[in-house]
Deep mutational scan, measured.
Amino acid sequence: MTFKLIINGKTLKGETTTEAVDAATAEKVFKQYANDNGLDGEWTYDDATKTFTITE
């Protein structure tokens, strides 16, 4: 399955995708991506669209 991450950061904005077997796996990938890029914010997830959002 394809999951999307929408980034609404103070300095970084955009989106990225990952292929994962489930939402929990995708969340780990996206949280590592956010950590690697210095993002810290509030996370939301929409199961209907398989989309995570981080807002700083």
Rank of each mutant, 00 (worst) to 15 (best):
D22M: 03
N35K: 15
D40C: 12
T25R: 07
M1S: 11
T53H: 05
I6G: 02
G38T: 05
W43E: 00
I6D: 03
E19H: 09
F52R: 00
N35R: 15
V29I: 15
E42S: 10
V29E: 06
Y45W: 04
T11P: 04
K28L: 09
I7G: 02
E19G: 05
G41Y: 04
T2Y: 11
F52C: 00
T17K: 09
K28N: 09
T44S: 12
G9V: 13
K50V: 04
T53W: 08
F30I: 01
T16M: 15
G41P: 02
A48C: 08
Y33C: 03
L5E: 00
M1Y: 15
A23R: 14
M1L: 15
K28Q: 12
N37G: 04
N37A: 15
D36L: 12
V29H: 14
F30H: 01
D40N: 12
E19T: 12
F3E: 00
F52Y: 05
E56Q: 09
K31I: 07
T51S: 05
T49Q: 08
I54L: 14
T49R: 07
A24W: 11
T2E: 08
V21H: 15
D36P: 01
Q32D: 07
I6L: 08
T18S: 04
D46G: 02
A34C: 08
E42C: 08
T17Q: 12
F52D: 00
L12Q: 12
D40P: 04
I54R: 01
W43A: 01
G41C: 03
L12G: 10
G14R: 07
T51C: 05
L5R: 00
M1E: 11
T44Y: 11
T44W: 06
E19A: 08
K31S: 05
E42H: 14
T17A: 08
K50P: 01
K13D: 06
L39N: 03
D36K: 11
G41H: 02
G14N: 07
K31N: 04
T2C: 07
T44E: 08
A26E: 00
D47Q: 09
E27C: 10
T17W: 14
E27M: 11
G14P: 06
L12S: 10
T18P: 01
D47T: 08
V29M: 08
N37T: 06
L12A: 10
Y45E: 01
E27S: 07
E15T: 12
Y45L: 02
K50F: 11
G14Q: 13
G38W: 06
E15A: 10
E56H: 06
E42P: 04
L12E: 09
K31A: 06
F30C: 01
A48R: 12
Y33G: 01
T16D: 03
Y33A: 03
K4R: 14
A26T: 00
K28R: 11
T44D: 10
T18I: 15
L39K: 02
D47S: 14
D40K: 14
K50R: 15
V29N: 06
K50C: 06
Y45R: 02
D40G: 09
D40Q: 15
T55N: 11
T25W: 09
L39V: 11
K10P: 08
E15I: 10
T44V: 08
N35S: 13
A23N: 05
W43M: 09
E27N: 05
D47L: 07
T49M: 07
G41I: 02
L12F: 14
F3Y: 11
T25C: 06
E42A: 09
F30N: 00
F30A: 01
I7F: 15
A34H: 01
K4D: 02
D46N: 11
T2R: 12
K31P: 00
L12D: 07
Y45I: 02
N8R: 11
V29Y: 15
T25V: 07
V21A: 12
A48W: 08
K50W: 06
E56D: 08
T53N: 04
L39E: 02
D40T: 15
F52V: 01
D46Y: 04
T16E: 08
K13R: 13
